[in-house]
Design a protein around this nucleic acid. Structure first.
Lengths: 333, 333
DNA sequence: CCTGGCACTCGGAACCTGAGAGTGCCAAGT
DNA sequence: ACTTGGCACTCTCAGGTTCCGAGTGCCAGG
């Protein structure tokens, strides 16, 4: 049903619509894209494409615009992610190069991604599974409250508050911290097992609650923090976007929504278009995301949120490039 | 030049304009606000107010709208901050009541403030000057990098990375941490003095760089973190606002801008209207801010950013109330 | 100093109209 | 069977015109 020319027509329509944000007509199409057939032929093709659900008309006798299904076909079969220019690569490299610590890497990444895609960037904090636990501390804050601190070799710090019996002596706290020394230099996965062991030897004192807290911290890792940047770019998503803007901004404030948005961490670029997003406020946006990390060890996900009418090839290229650079940069240390 | 009636006219115009977002004419004014004079009289008053710069006309033969100067006069002399209803107070109280730790308090506060004012809320992390240092740790991350951790009794954690000589033994790190025990249970101000002392006794090893790092952490406190919430509300600021939206969103991403926006921490509500904001992107917005903390010990500032055409009395009341409740809540525990 | 009256201005809604872009369909051509 | 030119038709949009009414400024009289 869809021969090569029809696909070429679809591709041309999407290209044109992304560029000019105006419905595309048959005449303009043959003029601008050297299709070597007459407008009438294109019209027939467009009618077919509309029947099949790839195109739609805003109103009779205007041009056609792509549907979500049209974009999907385009992304899947009609385009390839093209590599970035050397200049862009260098820009990414130098921008990330100056980063001091993990927070800095993440905040630079999110700014970079927002900058080069001109969309809203989302970066999940990495879970470096090769990272090892460097330090665990139990610190009294008040008579009946203590703080459990966990530091990994990547400089990542997590914390939990625990209740302690009012009479607990400082020595007991220290003892529990010393007890936790067993997991030093273990990875998260190893530590969880070691802690399970520790928990079974029913030790008295506060050690059990510390073990529980640390286990929780390690388990909570995957739902780690997410950073958003470039929110001002929603203002540029287009004039037709103003109505849908509020729910989008709302979604961007919800960590939970963002995490689901980024989805499963996979090491290639995934695109979710319009209604493919389950979150209702984002159904006029598309999400382009990619996992980052080592080839066989994905750490986390980053991506961008933009209007459905976005330049997919270029956005996908940018997201992929940034994901690779960040992964490489973090792997190096 | 400005008698009571003229002031009453200004007040009525602002009230009406805030409510209906439409220029106000003389006839509608006398009808809606029982001014007991004829429209012609009001017209004369309005002409005077316009001459003096409190009002302006969007175009000839439309009603008047207030200028920034008009709002300023209104805020300064024509209104008083009225207390919240018991229901609202209870809502604030219960909403903050469930907070677990400092992060939780701040994030609840920002959501609360955004919710009840329907504007963008900004909350600065508190600097509790009565907080004492509970813990300092020096943790090796790599051969030549270490992490300096500082924990206060409020559960606040700050960190700094330092370079260490490659040959440094773990014992030296521990020793430096032990050396820092001198500042335990000191307040920030006391600790800075103690550290200055320590620094003068030219100790060998890595202690000096640790001292420097901790001093920097303590000094950096005032430019502490800022949290923003309710960004989706900019979409509700009004139709005339769409043009100015992008710079506003941009400003909200810049920590530095936000901190300057909140300004000096004072314990009463301060309002900055339109052009009174030095930041250029926010000149069609107003900022209502208040310090929070103990009466003689202001910890930090919180506030909201909204359209110049906002309900000042109600916003000011909300900001003040939230500031008080948060201050009280933090003081208690 | 207030007020009613009056002439005037001007923006916006409503309406009309023509141009143009775009369509669908059909019959003829390849 | 597909392509093409032709053609009638539709519908939006831009531009122009008109008209209404809200609102004003000013003035003379109370």
């Amino acid at each position: 049903m869809l021969d090569d020319r029809k696909l070429a027509v679809l591709r041309a329509i999407i290209t044109d619509y992304v560029e000019n944000s105006e419905p595309v007509g048959s005449k303009a199409l043959v003029e601008r894209y050297r299709l070597d057939v007459s407008p009438a032929t294109i019209r027939n093709d467009m009618a077919t494409l509309e029947e099949e659900g790839y195109l739609t008309q805003p109103h009779t006798s205007a041009g056609r615009i792509p549907t979500d299904k049209g974009y999907r076909l385009f992304v899947d079969r009609l385009t390839s992610v093209k590599p970035l220019s050397p200049a862009e690569k260098r820009a990414i490299s130098t921008f990330l190069g100056g980063a001091a610590d993990l927070d800095d890497v993440v905040s630079r990444t999110v700014r970079l991604l927002a900058q080069i895609t001109q969309q809203v960037a989302i970066v999940q904090y990495p879970i470096v599974s090769t990272a090892v636990i460097r330090h665990i501390d139990v610190i009294r804050l008040h008579a009946d409250r203590a703080l459990v601190l966990l530091v990994t070799s990547t400089g990542r710090i997590t914390q939990a508050h625990i209740e302690i019996p009012a009479g607990t002596a400082d020595e007991d706290l220290e003892a529990s911290a010393v007890g936790m020394a067993a997991v030093r230099n273990l990875t998260s996965a190893e530590a969880v097992r070691a802690l399970a062991h520790l928990a079974r030897e029913a030790v008295p004192g506060i050690l059990p609650s510390v073990v529980a807290a640390v286990t929780a911290l390690l388990a909570a890792d995957p739902t780690t923090r997410v950073v958003v940047g470039g929110v001002q770019n929603v203002a540029r998503f287009g004039d037709d976007f103003h109505a849908a803007m509020e729910p989008v901004l709302e979604a961007l404030e919800e960590q939970v929504v963002l995490l689901r948005l980024l989805g499963e961490a996979r090491n290639d670029v995934t695109v979710r278009i319009g209604h493919e997003n389950e979150y209702i406020g984002l159904q006029s946006t598309s999400v382009v995301a990619s996992g980052y990390g080592m080839p066989d060890d994905v750490w986390a996900t980053l991506g961008v949120v933009g209007p459905t009418r976005m330049n997919y090839p270029s956005t996908m290229a940018s997201v992929r490039a940034v994901a690779r650079y960040v992964g490489r940069f973090l792997a190096e240390g």
